[in-house]
Computed example of a mutant assay.
Amino acid sequence: MTDLLTVEQVAQELQVNVKTVYQWIKAKRLKATNIGTKNRANWRIERKDLENFLDEGKTD
């Protein structure tokens, strides 16, 4: 099974504000899947996508 993280878990792990994680998702910098509805989003981030996001940030 894929390791899925909530926005809150990602924010806590990276020690950033939850709003920052939402901004990354909105800007398509961090890949996330909406398991909710369009009007009430409920985002999940796969561990591998978080790792890819972090790896890409190291080269900026």
Rank of each mutant, 00 (worst) to 15 (best):
M1L: 11
M1S: 14
M1W: 07
M1P: 04
M1T: 12
T2D: 11
T2L: 05
D3V: 11
D3F: 07
D3Y: 09
D3I: 11
D3Q: 12
L4N: 07
L4G: 02
L4M: 10
L4R: 11
L4W: 15
L5I: 09
L5K: 14
L5F: 09
T6C: 07
T6N: 11
V7H: 03
V7P: 02
E8M: 10
E8N: 12
E8W: 07
E8R: 14
E8Y: 10
Q9R: 15
Q9F: 02
Q9T: 13
Q9C: 10
Q9Y: 05
V10P: 09
A11D: 06
A11E: 06
Q12H: 08
Q12E: 15
E13C: 00
E13D: 09
L14E: 10
Q15C: 02
Q15A: 10
N17Y: 00
V18A: 00
V18I: 12
V18N: 04
K19W: 00
T20A: 05
V21F: 01
Y22I: 01
Q23I: 01
Q23W: 01
Q23S: 12
Q23K: 13
I25R: 08
A27Y: 06
A27E: 12
A27R: 14
K28V: 00
R29P: 00
R29I: 00
L30G: 04
L30V: 08
L30N: 03
K31D: 01
K31F: 00
K31T: 12
A32V: 07
T33S: 12
T33K: 15
N34A: 03
N34Y: 13
I35G: 02
I35D: 03
G36K: 12
K38A: 07
K38H: 10
N39W: 10
N39G: 15
R40Y: 12
R40W: 08
R40P: 03
A41L: 03
A41R: 15
N42K: 15
N42D: 09
N42G: 01
N42Y: 14
N42S: 13
N42L: 14
R44T: 05
I45H: 06
I45T: 07
I45E: 08
I45L: 05
I45Y: 04
E46N: 14
E46Q: 15
K48H: 05
D49K: 07
D49T: 05
D49R: 06
E51K: 09
E51H: 03
N52D: 04
N52W: 00
F53D: 07
L54S: 04
L54F: 04
D55R: 15
D55A: 15
E56L: 15
G57A: 08
G57M: 13
T59L: 13
T59C: 06
T59V: 14
T59S: 12
D60S: 13
D60E: 11
D60W: 13
